[in-house]
Design a binder for these strands. Sequence first.
DNA 1: TTCAATACCTAGACGGACAAGGCAATGGAG
DNA 2: CTCCATTGCCTTGTCCGTCTAGGTATTGAA
Lengths: 112, 112
Amino acid sequence: MDSRLLWGTVEMLILEVVAQGPTYGYEISQTVGERSRGYFDLKEGSLYPALHRLEQQKLLTSFWDEVEGRRRKYYKLSVKGQTALDAKKAAWKAFSQGVNGVLGAHVLAPGL
Amino acid sequence: MDSRLLWGTVEMLILEVVAQGPTYGYEISQTVGERSRGYFDLKEGSLYPALHRLEQQKLLTSFWDEVEGRRRKYYKLSVKGQTALDAKKAAWKAFSQGVNGVLGAHVLAPGL
DNA sequence: TTCAATACCTAGACGGACAAGGCAATGGAG
DNA sequence: CTCCATTGCCTTGTCCGTCTAGGTATTGAA
């Protein structure tokens, strides 16, 4: 896939996954991969910095836990995070509609 | 709009517009704006470097013309450019499907 | 013992979109 | 005539998110 397309969407994808319940980095990347049918392969160099940004912006809160000898940093969506997620989804919708508008609705609309 | 989302799509949008017939920078930005219902506002600092990249990659060919005292650099899609456009559109489709997959089809599918 | 999988992290490189600047011609408002 | 919006092209430098590639550590199976 073209990684350039990813710009600005990684945070939305992460927030969306965390919105379904507390989870941690490694699992997030797995979930994103599965739910996109293998299309996305979130790299650690993108994933962890993004998680740190989101936490710093207080869109996510975190706590450490240990399961079967494995340290995991769990993330939970904050109220502010839910608001941000809603905004990002609205922005994504507007963006994709904008792109499809330029591409010509007749081209993609039927299959989409 | 979130300009980060634009990453990787500007070239596709330009190729698509040029694919409908020879045109020039200023008109391309107008067309993209109109066809996205005002959503996109292609900045010159993005537009012209992108046109130069596309020409350098031989996806576009260009020629100068003058109409009513105004110098215009017209661009035309090459065969290679059409192939690249098709690929970019396929990539966009896969990408947007991937995103929507993560967001959950039930969320966006009805409205889309 | 070795290696895949799990699980976290970081430094540095890369590259495209942006802001802000420049140049030049037209044509209408004042 | 003068000003300025519009048309039309271009470039420099900044910004910042993604990636590559590296590091550490545990578990459990081959």
